[in-house]
Write a protein that binds this DNA or RNA. Structure first.
Lengths: 146, 146
DNA sequence: TCTCAATTAATAATTATTTTCATACCTTAG
DNA sequence: CTAAGGTATGAAAATAATTATTAATTGAGA
């Protein structure tokens, strides 16, 4: 937990920026809610408990910053807003998301079998792949059995 | 070309809706620009050439409708707007997109090797997969060699 | 021709997000 | 200690994509 905060501090320093209370509080909320996929408004509401004077614009700015610093990643579930999750350093790539069309639940998938596909694409299209985003749509276990 | 229009007409009829000049013109533009990934504003501008009295809201409604009818699909490239492309009936799944971080070019990938991955996920997570969206980010051939 | 629902253009309203701007806060030089 | 210069901030205004409202128009079927 502390580690990520230290990484942020360091990366900010390199850039001539500072780890302010607002930034610390925002990152804390995201870390405390690992597994959730909070949107900006939700993060704002939660951060306000620790840091009541924070402005929404600051939250937007902070999330942008954290994404640039490679600390969090943005998820777009086509629900009209951006959602965020902490990046776990233990993988090169992001994990994937299963989106249930029945209850809108989001399930994280740890399996990553895209390596072969990536290699094939890189060769075939002479394209240098840096990252990917993969979403599956369908019905979760609960919704399926109704 | 005519075929898709007929399919649309039929699906609209089933729903008690009509194939109006505005809807016909919108679908035509998308078909004529297969391979492009036009956003709503761009579609609006092009449709206006054929159908100058059309309103932007109608284009929005029509695109929503065409998506529901499974005639077109929406692509989200995180550039702040929705883009659309005609669905080619010759695949179960959508093709994938390579997005160049150098020049923002979009390249379509025909290879689909997700079957194994899907099967594994369906078993492991008891999730019934209906569709997927996969995007790769990186550098295209041109940008890579600069 | 008449009727009625579907459709539309125009416009207003909404929503998420970004920008502006004046102020506050640090850090360093003098 | 104080001034200067940068970064960060909250509040509010601005922007951009999209949706809702409304009143008029259209067109298929009785």
């Amino acid at each position: 937990m502390l580690e990520t905060m230290d990484i942020l501090k360091e990366r900010l320093k390199e850039k001539g920026s500072k780890l302010t209370p607002q930034r610390r509080a925002t990152l804390n909320i995201i870390m405390e809610n690992k597994g959730e996929h909070l949107n900006t408004e939700e993060i704002y509401e939660l951060v306000r408990k620790d840091c009541p004077e924070i402005g929404l614009a600051t939250v937007y700015r902070t999330l942008q910053l954290l994404e640039e610093m490679d600390i969090i990643s943005r998820i777009n579930l086509d629900d009209g807003c951006s959602r965020y999750e902490i990046k776990t350093g233990d993988e090169d790539h992001q994990h994937h998301h299963l989106i249930c069309q029945g209850c809108n639940k989001i399930i994280e998938v740890k399996i990553d079998l895209l390596d072969d596909l990536e290699k094939e694409i890189e060769k075939e299209y002479d394209f240098d792949i840096k990252d990917h985003k993969l979403k599956f749509f369908g019905l979760c276990s609960d919704c399926k059995h109704k």
